[in-house]
């Protein structure tokens, strides 16, 4: 236990500078949850296929359960806690609430961040694009119907913004 090397990793976390002393083998999800107390990223499959642990690194979704914390050095990490607060919700969060696009909520933080990333790249995606992009985020409760409704609602708003900026 005592002879394991430690290292310092410095990165941007939810738009603030952050650093942590970690073991090189430590995973991003554990550092976020244990070192920073950010428990919105959830551990589910633990294999990088279900999407519950999704966070955005430089704007792109990654599975924090299979990303080494050391690998985010110098990069920008956004977790659900940094996206919006109950007092100032992000439009994606607002849409999920309005459409009832969640049940147990365990996949929700990852799903919301994946949608955020999609809309940043394509503000008015087609339903086909939505279904393709979110394939890596599993939800076992909702059957996805209301999630698709929420995202397509956002896409419509995105399209309006495009035509009337």
């Amino acid at each position: 236990m005592n002879d394991i090397a430690v290292m310092d990793v410095t990165f941007t976390l939810n738009n603030e500078p952050a650093s942590a002393r970690i073991e090189p083998r430590e995973l991003l999800i554990d550092v976020l949850r244990e070192n920073f107390g950010l428990r919105g990223a959830k551990r589910s499959c633990d294999l990088g296929v279900c999407g519950a642990c999704t966070v955005l690194v430089d704007g792109l979704p990654v599975s924090s359960c299979s990303t080494l914390a050391a690998d985010v050095a110098g990069r920008s990490v956004l977790t659900i806690e940094g996206l919006g607060t109950p007092q100032a919700l992000d439009p994606v969060q607002q849409a999920f609430i309005e459409h009832g696009a969640m049940q147990c909520g365990f996949c929700t933080p990852g799903m919301v961040l994946a949608v955020k990333s999609l809309l940043a790249a394509e503000p008015s995606p087609t339903e086909e694009q939505v279904r393709h992009y979110l394939r890596g985020n599993i939800c076992r409760c909702t059957g996805y119907v209301k999630i698709i409704e929420a995202v397509m609602d956002l896409a419509k708003r995105g399209a309006r913004l495009k035509t009337n900026p």
């Binding site: 950010l38 428990r39 919105g40 990223a41 959830k42 551990r43 977790t79 659900i80 806690e81 996206l83 919006g84 607060t85 109950p86 919700l89 969060q93 999920f96 609430i97 309005e98 009832g100 969640m102 909520g105 365990f106 929700t108 933080p109 919301v112």
Partner: peptide
């Protein structure tokens, strides 16, 4: 129509046993 748990869940504040 809005459930009380939605806000906590969508902001990552909801506490699960895990």
């Amino acid at each position: 129509e809005i459930r009380g748990d939605y806000l906590e869940k969508v902001t990552g504040q909801a506490q699960f046993a895990s």
